[in-house]
Design a binder for these strands. Structure first.
Lengths: 141, 141
DNA sequence: TTGCTTAATGCAATTTGGTTGCAAATATAC
DNA sequence: GTATATTTGCAACCAAATTGCATTAAGCAA
């Protein structure tokens, strides 16, 4: 995984630093989404918040991470898996296990409802309970 | 408009206060969306931020305003126009004139892509340029 | 390998947006 | 008009994001 991270950094012309490797490995090793606060907790002593923040920012700018915000307005980051037909702007996030999956782009029939209003950016977040977590918690059925 | 505001307040069992009337009239008199900061600027001397905040909160709870958040996570409020098939969670916002329109619910075919993942909440914001503003600014064509 | 140059980091401080406790002011019911 | 409960303004606080700057470290070239 370190290998994968190193390659990604090189491909993007970024210096290989411990901070960047650590942060990237968190994402490479999980399907979850993380906030800056999550990373602060993981690396409380090892890395400063501002450095973690700057790494996330850099990764987002390079298209390595996707970024969106939850209902309370906190920024959430997740690995960009470059799924075809996914623009990285539509996600489903499980409130229980925090797993995030990218959703396909909105159907053109829906976007036609915009009429002559021109779309430039969009952001869709659907939150709920994923299949796994529903099965784990029978009381929620 | 004051009349309309007064009626709305009474219908919702809310006391008629200057703060509430002022805030509600901002929304009744416009198709735009406003943040707390916007209202602070409008009423800088007349009303305190906390009172504006509480009015917005109350209106949202009563279903008079819709609330969602923009790309940077700031809460945005707009009048709930009770359009059929609109759940108040999908919006188009013009980056230029700030006009907001509610969009219909996502099509069921799209939601079926969630599979057995169960949706509980959602938030869709599409930003761009509305028809009017495109015509006003020919250089963007 | 060493030194050089530029970029990244840690720390402290700041900004922004949201939120609360409490005393004073005010709307409504009587 | 008066009593009562609600709302308001103020100040303070909180959470998340962001920045300036001195220090440190990465990577290139000699």
């Amino acid at each position: 995984m370190i290998q994968e991270a190193t390659t990604l950094l090189k491909e993007n012309g970024l210096k290989i630093t411990q901070n960047r490797l650590d942060v990237l490995c968190v994402f490479l090793g999980s399907e979850k989404a993380f906030t800056l606060l999550d990373l602060e907790k993981i690396f409380s002593l090892k890395h400063d918040r501002s450095s973690l923040f700057r790494s996330l920012q850099t990764y987002y700018e390079k298209g390595i991470l996707e970024k969106f915000c939850n209902a309370t307005g906190t920024a959430i980051y997740t690995l960009n898996r470059h799924k075809p037909d996914c623009n990285g702007k539509s996600h489903f996030k499980c409130k229980d296990c925090e797993t995030v999956v990218s959703l396909p782009n909105l159907p053109t029939e829906y976007l036609q409802l915009l009429g002559n209003n021109k779309m430039e950016t969009m952001n869709l977040l659907i939150e709920g309970t994923c299949e796994n977590c529903q099965n784990k918690n029978p009381e929620t059925l």
